[in-house]
Computed example of a mutant assay.
Amino acid sequence: MRRIYSPTVGAESWQSLLADPVKHWRTGYSARTLAHCWEAAEGLPPEIASLFGADAELLIAIPEHKVSLRDAGRESQTDVFALVKSNNRTIAVAVEGKVNESFGPTIREWYVDPSPGKQQRLALLCDLVGVKCPPPDDAHYQLFHRTASAVIEADRFKTDDAAMVVHSFSPVNRWLDAYAAFLNLFGVAT
């Protein structure tokens, strides 16, 4: 994983950072929509700023930020990793963009006949996010590793807090129920 980041020159700069720059860079899909939104905001997009308070300030945003999950498995590629300052606190924020795409496989689908590596990863993710292992079968695996990314980066950057935010552009709140179920694991209601 590289540790040197270069500034963007607009939304189009984000395309080359994608796992599949052709497939994932389409009008109406999250990667492109998120890039245009964040670039146009020149700071925190208003809907994200509102989550952190009136004085929320974007310190840095890194598109398609890869985070090692402290095991031999694949890194978690966060759509946007941001350091946000609010109320004299610094927050490590993992942002997952969505339009109509799902959160991918559920734990049940991802954990079929788990290898020792998958068993180790799931235990690690649950430990990092503070959820009993194994988590509910219908929870989405992606939400666990994105949240763990925020926790890991909060530790690495010595921030006060960590947050995982889904930046949704769905006009019909698609997948809100899946996100709400995930938040419910932490006693958070939507």
Results as ranks from 00 to 15, higher is better:
residue 137 D to F: 09
residue 171 P to Q: 14
residue 129 V to C: 08
residue 148 A to I: 04
residue 135 P to W: 00
residue 58 L to H: 02
residue 163 A to D: 01
residue 53 G to T: 12
residue 81 F to K: 02
residue 5 Y to H: 15
residue 156 R to P: 00
residue 59 L to G: 03
residue 115 S to D: 09
residue 75 E to Q: 13
residue 140 H to R: 10
residue 7 P to T: 12
residue 117 G to H: 14
residue 30 S to K: 05
residue 35 A to K: 06
residue 96 E to Q: 07
residue 110 W to S: 06
residue 109 E to I: 03
residue 44 L to Y: 01
residue 118 K to M: 09
residue 60 I to W: 03
residue 87 N to F: 12
residue 161 D to Y: 04
residue 12 E to L: 15
residue 81 F to E: 00
residue 141 Y to A: 03
residue 140 H to E: 03
residue 154 A to Q: 02
residue 112 V to G: 08
residue 8 T to G: 13
residue 72 A to L: 11
residue 170 S to M: 11
residue 180 A to F: 10
residue 106 T to P: 05
residue 65 H to L: 04
residue 130 G to T: 09
residue 91 I to P: 00
residue 108 R to C: 12
residue 69 L to Q: 03
residue 12 E to Q: 14
residue 87 N to T: 10
residue 65 H to K: 12
residue 83 L to R: 00
residue 158 K to N: 05
residue 56 A to C: 10
residue 165 V to H: 06
residue 46 P to R: 10
residue 30 S to G: 09
residue 84 V to T: 02
residue 165 V to W: 05
residue 189 A to K: 14
residue 183 L to V: 06
residue 143 L to F: 07
residue 67 V to I: 01
residue 130 G to R: 11
residue 46 P to N: 07
residue 180 A to Y: 08
residue 65 H to D: 10
residue 122 L to F: 07
residue 164 M to T: 11
residue 110 W to N: 07
residue 38 W to L: 06
residue 9 V to S: 15
residue 9 V to F: 15
residue 149 S to C: 01
residue 8 T to I: 15
residue 152 I to Y: 00
residue 117 G to L: 14
residue 18 L to W: 03
residue 42 E to W: 05
residue 98 K to P: 15
residue 44 L to W: 00
residue 181 A to Q: 01
residue 80 V to D: 06
residue 23 K to D: 11
residue 26 R to E: 07
residue 61 A to N: 05
residue 34 L to V: 07
residue 24 H to S: 13
residue 133 C to H: 14
residue 149 S to M: 02
residue 115 S to V: 07
residue 83 L to W: 00
residue 65 H to G: 07
residue 44 L to N: 00
residue 91 I to C: 02
residue 71 D to S: 05
residue 26 R to M: 09
residue 28 G to F: 04
residue 117 G to A: 15
residue 92 A to W: 01
residue 105 P to G: 10
residue 101 E to C: 10
residue 159 T to N: 01
residue 68 S to K: 03
residue 178 A to M: 12
residue 123 A to M: 11
residue 6 S to Y: 15
residue 11 A to C: 12
residue 140 H to I: 03
residue 104 G to P: 02
residue 24 H to G: 09
residue 112 V to D: 10
residue 52 F to R: 08
residue 154 A to F: 02
residue 161 D to F: 03
residue 143 L to I: 04
residue 73 G to K: 11
residue 1 M to K: 13
residue 159 T to A: 01
residue 128 L to Y: 07
residue 104 G to K: 05
residue 158 K to M: 03
residue 16 S to D: 10
residue 74 R to N: 15
residue 152 I to L: 01
residue 96 E to P: 09
residue 179 Y to I: 13
residue 184 N to G: 11
residue 141 Y to F: 05
residue 77 Q to A: 10
residue 56 A to P: 11
residue 120 Q to F: 09
residue 116 P to K: 06
residue 186 F to H: 12
residue 22 V to D: 09
residue 181 A to F: 02
residue 10 G to Q: 02
residue 97 G to N: 10
residue 146 R to E: 11
residue 60 I to H: 04
residue 16 S to H: 13
residue 173 N to G: 09
